[in-house]
């Protein structure tokens, strides 16, 4: 499976057990893949913080 599909499925929580094993193996053995995932995990944390702040502002208007 190409990296972009594997990554999309990982972040949307749609990896099958077999795909998860493939993901973990690639994360373990491929430095470039690992760096990309670590970067995207940081991006997830950042966008979560921003998104939560915006949602709070939305609730305050209700």
């Amino acid at each position: 499976m190409v990296d972009s599909i594997l990554i999309e499925k990982y972040f949307s929580g749609n990896l099958s057990e077999e795909e998860l094993l493939e993901f973990e193996k690639r994360y373990e053995n491929n430095t470039e893949f690992r760096q990309e995932i670590d970067f995207l995990k940081n991006l997830k944390a950042v966008s979560k913080a921003e998104d939560t702040q915006q949602f709070k502002a939305t609730l305050q208007r209700f």
């Binding site: 999309e8 972040f11 949307s12 929580g13 749609n14 991006l43 997830k44 966008s47 921003e50 998104d51």
Partner: peptide
């Protein structure tokens, strides 16, 4: 910002 938020935080396909 929205595209990346929807993809990586919200986990939408």
């Amino acid at each position: 910002q929205r595209m990346l938020t929807l993809s990586f935080y919200r986990g939408l396909t």
